[in-house]
Amino acid sequence: MVEKPSQPHRNPATPVAEKATLRRELLAARRSLSPEARRAAALALSRTALELPELADAQTVAAYVSVGGEPGTRELLDALRAAGKRVLLPLLLPDNDLDWAVYEGPDSLAEAAHPGKIRLLEPAGPPLGPDAVTGADAVLLPGLAVDRRGMRLGRGGGSYDRVLERLERAGARPALVVLLHDEEVVARVPEEPHDHPVQAVATPSGVIRFRAVPPTASA
């Protein structure tokens, strides 16, 4: 009897590979949005986010300037500043970590070129140091998706993983809120042991809150 060759063993996709696939899909969807759709989403997102009590009660908010197909944050930044909030914005460091500076209005932003990376708008004020984020009452996080457990999928650069680790080391407990398009709230995102759940996601259509749960040990 001739034995049939054994079938190659197929390992299930790792969280890293699953994340890469999902990122490609989500980024393609963002690129397909028209300028009009992006503008409408940004205005609606600003209204939604401002209704969050975590932002209403905050004195200091760590935020970011949106780029590319990210849900627009410029209106929200100005609204937070107009409400008397101290708004911190990131400065990308050569090792992908983040420093922070105070947002002083649209004219205080300058285009920063980082070799091999997308051009960013960054605050022109004096850097406060990476630990400045630990004094924030709320941190607005960029992302590509959040699932129904509150697990966030970032772009993969690791900058905000470092921010979250820094907050944890310092014992800081700011509200963590991700800003997304409506369709980027998904059933599940792949997770790894270093991933952190968030408390809420704000989209143009509203806010979804989560109960914080630790990532699974097997992820």
Results as ranks from 00 to 15, higher is better:
Ala212Tyr: 13
Arg155Ala: 15
Ala202Tyr: 08
His181Ala: 01
Ala13Gly: 04
His181Val: 00
Ala175Cys: 07
Ala219Ser: 10
Glu70Gln: 09
Ser205Leu: 11
Asp95Val: 09
Pro190Met: 06
Glu192Ser: 02
Asp131Gly: 07
Ala145Asn: 00
Asp195Thr: 00
Glu122Asp: 12
Ala124Met: 13
Glu168Asp: 13
Arg86Val: 12
Asp107His: 12
Arg81Asp: 03
Leu22Cys: 01
Ala82Arg: 00
Leu176Trp: 07
Arg173Ile: 10
Pro106Cys: 06
Glu54His: 11
Arg31Met: 09
Ala187His: 14
Leu140Lys: 02
Leu50Val: 11
Pro174Ile: 10
Leu27Arg: 13
Ser159Gly: 09
Glu192Ile: 03
Tyr64Pro: 05
Glu191Leu: 14
Pro126Trp: 03
Ala132Gln: 00
Glu18Asp: 09
Gly143Ile: 01
Gly84Phe: 03
Val185Arg: 08
Ala20Thr: 07
Pro214Gly: 09
Leu93Met: 14
Asp137Pro: 02
Asp182Trp: 04
Asp78Trp: 00
Val139Glu: 00
Glu51Cys: 13
Val186Phe: 11
Ser32Gly: 10
Pro90Arg: 06
Glu51Ser: 13
Ala110Ile: 15
Ala83Asp: 09
Arg209Ile: 06
Leu176Asp: 07
Leu45Asn: 00
Pro106Ile: 01
Gly156Gln: 03
Leu140Phe: 07
Glu51Leu: 13
Gly157Met: 06
Gly72Thr: 05
Arg81Met: 05
Ala82Glu: 03
Ala187Leu: 14
Leu80Ala: 09
Asp95Thr: 11
His9Met: 14
Arg162Leu: 13
Val65His: 03
Pro12Arg: 14
Ala170Asn: 01
Leu33Asp: 04
Glu51Lys: 11
Gly158Pro: 09
Leu50Asn: 04
Arg10Ile: 15
Asp57His: 06
Glu25Thr: 14
Arg119Tyr: 11
Leu179Thr: 03
Asp195Cys: 06
Ala132Val: 03
Thr203Met: 09
Leu153Tyr: 07
Lys4Arg: 15
Ala41Trp: 05
Leu109His: 04
Ala101Gln: 01
Arg119Asn: 12
Ala83Met: 07
Ala20Gln: 06
Asp131Leu: 14
Glu192Tyr: 10
Leu176Ser: 01
Arg211Ala: 12
Asp147Phe: 07
Glu25Pro: 12
Glu183His: 13
Leu80Ser: 09
Tyr160Phe: 04
Ile118Lys: 12
Ala136Ile: 04
Ala44Ile: 04
Glu183Gly: 07
His114Arg: 13
Glu54Lys: 11
Ala138Glu: 11
Glu18Met: 14
Lys4Gly: 12
Gly116Phe: 12
His196Gln: 15
